[in-house]
Amino acid sequence: MPPACNLDMGKQAPAVTKDSWEKSVLNSDAPVLVEFYASWCGPCRMVHRVIDEIATEYAGRLNCFVLNTDDDPQIAEDYEIKGVPVVFLFKNGEKRETVIGTMPKEFYVAAIERVLKL
Protein backbone atom coordinates (compact mmCIF):
# COMPACT_ATOMS: atom_id res chain seq x y z
CA MET A 1 0.00 0.00 0.00
CA PRO A 2 1.32 3.48 -0.81
CA PRO A 3 1.45 6.03 2.01
CA ALA A 4 -1.78 7.68 3.00
CA CYS A 5 -2.91 10.62 0.92
CA ASN A 6 -4.94 13.09 2.85
CA LEU A 7 -4.22 16.45 1.25
CA ASP A 8 -2.19 17.83 4.14
CA MET A 9 -5.21 17.40 6.33
CA GLY A 10 -5.14 19.73 9.27
CA LYS A 11 -3.54 18.58 12.43
CA GLN A 12 -5.79 21.05 14.18
CA ALA A 13 -9.09 20.77 12.36
CA PRO A 14 -10.38 17.18 12.63
CA ALA A 15 -12.76 15.50 10.20
CA VAL A 16 -16.48 15.58 10.80
CA THR A 17 -18.71 12.94 9.20
CA LYS A 18 -22.39 12.12 8.80
CA ASP A 19 -22.18 10.17 12.06
CA SER A 20 -20.70 12.97 14.13
CA TRP A 21 -22.47 15.85 12.36
CA GLU A 22 -25.38 16.23 14.78
CA LYS A 23 -23.28 16.11 17.91
CA SER A 24 -20.27 18.08 16.66
CA VAL A 25 -22.02 20.70 14.53
CA LEU A 26 -25.74 21.00 15.22
CA ASN A 27 -25.66 20.47 18.98
CA SER A 28 -22.40 22.26 19.70
CA ASP A 29 -22.42 24.88 22.46
CA ALA A 30 -19.61 26.80 20.77
CA PRO A 31 -19.87 28.18 17.22
CA VAL A 32 -18.62 25.75 14.57
CA LEU A 33 -16.66 26.20 11.35
CA VAL A 34 -16.82 23.45 8.69
CA GLU A 35 -14.67 23.43 5.58
CA PHE A 36 -16.06 21.23 2.80
CA TYR A 37 -13.41 19.86 0.46
CA ALA A 38 -12.89 17.19 -2.19
CA SER A 39 -10.02 14.68 -2.42
CA TRP A 40 -8.30 16.17 -5.48
CA CYS A 41 -9.19 19.82 -4.96
CA GLY A 42 -5.91 21.74 -5.13
CA PRO A 43 -7.07 25.05 -3.66
CA CYS A 44 -8.69 23.21 -0.75
CA ARG A 45 -5.15 22.54 0.47
CA MET A 46 -4.55 26.26 0.78
CA VAL A 47 -7.77 26.72 2.72
CA HIS A 48 -6.86 23.76 4.97
CA ARG A 49 -3.72 25.60 6.04
CA VAL A 50 -5.68 28.74 6.90
CA ILE A 51 -8.33 26.77 8.79
CA ASP A 52 -5.63 24.98 10.78
CA GLU A 53 -4.19 28.32 11.87
CA ILE A 54 -7.66 29.56 12.75
CA ALA A 55 -8.40 26.39 14.73
CA THR A 56 -5.35 27.10 16.88
CA GLU A 57 -6.01 30.83 17.24
CA TYR A 58 -9.68 30.39 18.15
CA ALA A 59 -9.26 27.27 20.28
CA GLY A 60 -11.93 27.22 22.99
CA ARG A 61 -14.13 29.78 21.22
CA LEU A 62 -14.74 28.07 17.88
CA ASN A 63 -14.74 24.40 16.87
CA CYS A 64 -13.24 23.80 13.43
CA PHE A 65 -13.85 20.73 11.27
CA VAL A 66 -13.26 19.56 7.70
CA LEU A 67 -15.61 17.34 5.69
CA ASN A 68 -14.63 15.36 2.59
CA THR A 69 -17.58 15.57 0.19
CA ASP A 70 -16.40 12.46 -1.69
CA ASP A 71 -16.70 10.43 1.49
CA ASP A 72 -19.82 12.09 2.89
CA PRO A 73 -22.05 12.86 -0.10
CA GLN A 74 -25.17 12.87 2.08
CA ILE A 75 -24.10 15.89 4.14
CA ALA A 76 -22.78 17.58 0.99
CA GLU A 77 -26.14 17.12 -0.71
CA ASP A 78 -28.15 18.18 2.36
CA TYR A 79 -26.28 21.49 2.28
CA GLU A 80 -26.30 21.71 -1.52
CA ILE A 81 -22.53 21.84 -1.82
CA LYS A 82 -21.45 22.48 -5.42
CA GLY A 83 -18.06 24.20 -5.65
CA VAL A 84 -15.35 23.44 -3.12
CA PRO A 85 -13.69 24.70 -1.03
CA VAL A 86 -16.57 26.27 0.84
CA VAL A 87 -16.62 27.20 4.52
CA PHE A 88 -19.78 27.36 6.65
CA LEU A 89 -20.11 28.89 10.08
CA PHE A 90 -22.77 27.56 12.43
CA LYS A 91 -24.15 28.93 15.65
CA ASN A 92 -26.79 27.07 17.68
CA GLY A 93 -27.09 24.56 14.84
CA GLU A 94 -27.92 27.19 12.26
CA LYS A 95 -25.75 28.15 9.32
CA ARG A 96 -24.97 31.85 9.71
CA GLU A 97 -22.09 32.58 7.33
CA THR A 98 -20.74 31.12 4.08
CA VAL A 99 -17.32 31.78 2.54
CA ILE A 100 -17.13 30.43 -1.01
CA GLY A 101 -13.86 29.61 -2.74
CA THR A 102 -10.28 30.33 -1.75
CA MET A 103 -10.13 33.59 0.14
CA PRO A 104 -7.47 35.44 2.11
CA LYS A 105 -7.44 34.61 5.82
CA GLU A 106 -9.00 37.97 6.74
CA PHE A 107 -12.26 36.95 5.04
CA TYR A 108 -12.61 33.91 7.26
CA VAL A 109 -11.61 35.85 10.35
CA ALA A 110 -14.15 38.61 9.59
CA ALA A 111 -16.94 36.05 9.15
CA ILE A 112 -15.94 34.33 12.41
CA GLU A 113 -15.94 37.62 14.29
CA ARG A 114 -19.44 38.40 13.01
CA VAL A 115 -20.69 35.03 14.22
CA LEU A 116 -18.98 35.35 17.60
CA LYS A 117 -20.74 38.69 18.13
CA LEU A 118 -24.19 37.25 17.39
Binding site: A4, C5, N6, L7, A15, T17, K18, D19, S39, N68, D70, D71, D72
Partner: peptide, 9 residues
Protein backbone atom coordinates in the same frame (compact mmCIF):
# COMPACT_ATOMS: atom_id res chain seq x y z
CA UNK B 1 -15.14 6.86 7.82
CA UNK B 2 -11.85 8.61 8.52
CA UNK B 3 -9.97 5.47 7.72
CA UNK B 4 -12.11 5.01 4.65
CA UNK B 5 -11.25 8.47 3.40
CA UNK B 6 -7.56 7.80 3.81
CA UNK B 7 -7.70 4.49 1.99
CA UNK B 8 -9.90 5.80 -0.79
CA UNK B 9 -7.55 8.70 -1.44
Amino acid sequence: SRLRSVIRA
